[in-house]
Computed example of a mutant assay.
Amino acid sequence: VFVFVLYVFIFSLCTGLSLRSQGLTALFLAVRLFCSVFMEADIHTMLDFASLVSTLWVIYMMWFKLKATYVKELDNMPLYYLLIPSVVLALIVKPYTHYGFMSEFLWAFCSYLEAVSVLPQLRLMQNAKMIEPFTSHYVFALGIARFLACAHWIIRVIETRGAYLYIAGSGYFWFPVAFLAEMVQTFILADFCYYYVKSFMAGQLVMRMPV
């Protein structure tokens, strides 16, 4: 998010950026921040707040100041494909806490939505076929971050011999499904990372997406 802020601020461009993906990011950050204030209120709360403010600024710039450089025709992934499944899954599988149903539902919803929030960005790049270096660097960095987060989950599961998936009081299916959501997000970005590395090794500054 902060990389996007730097890009928009320095170059005054939003070419190659998905407004829909930024909107989903703002939504899950806002929901997670709301839950975090009541459930955790730690350093992660401050980081979520800073990320949300930065994302909202990027959205404002894309929608008003830099609208001429935003390619709306390529950013065409229907959001209900992502929102409706996230809501339904959050109603079915959510953590069990003493904070009540709404907090449990919202926490699950933002976790599932985060897993698929990058899809509109990938769809835009797929439509554009040609990806600017800055955008490709950002998405690759996001992929590496998700890979490390997924690796952290796997290590914790191995260290606890599977017990980490069934933490008492968190719902029998919650951690396995949350872990699956983390895996889904990782695999969504894995394909892009493959083509990024392939283009980088070939010395291509502008990345080409497969048809």
Rank of each mutant, 00 (worst) to 15 (best):
F49A: 15
F49K: 09
V53Y: 08
V53G: 11
S54N: 13
S54Y: 10
T55G: 12
W57V: 12
I59P: 12
M62P: 13
M62G: 12
W63V: 09
F64G: 04
F64D: 13
K65C: 10
A68P: 07
A68R: 08
K72M: 13
K72V: 15
E73N: 13
N76L: 01
M77G: 10
Y80A: 10
Y81M: 15
Y81P: 06
L82V: 11
L82A: 11
L83E: 07
I84C: 11
I84T: 14
I84A: 15
P85R: 10
P85F: 13
S86Y: 06
S86W: 04
L89S: 14
L91D: 07
K94Q: 14
K94H: 15
P95N: 02
P95D: 02
P95M: 01
Y96P: 00
Y96H: 08
Y99V: 05
G100P: 03
F101N: 03
S103M: 09
S103G: 08
S103V: 05
F105L: 07
F105S: 03
L106A: 01
L106M: 00
A108L: 00
A108H: 00
Y112S: 01
E114T: 03
E114S: 02
E114C: 03
A115N: 08
A115L: 09
A115T: 11
S117C: 13
L119V: 14
P120L: 07
Q121A: 07
L122P: 10
L122C: 10
L122M: 12
L124Y: 11
L124K: 06
L124T: 06
M125E: 06
Q126Y: 15
Q126T: 06
A128G: 07
A128F: 08
K129C: 09
K129Q: 13
K129R: 15
K129L: 11
K129M: 10
I131A: 09
I131T: 14
I131E: 11
T135L: 10
T135Q: 13
T135M: 13
S136V: 08
V139G: 05
V139R: 00
A141D: 03
A141R: 01
A141S: 12
L142H: 05
R146W: 04
F147K: 01
F147T: 10
A149T: 02
C150K: 00
A151M: 07
A151S: 08
H152S: 06
W153P: 02
I155F: 02
R156M: 04
V157I: 15
V157P: 09
I158D: 04
T160Q: 02
T160D: 03
R161A: 05
G162C: 08
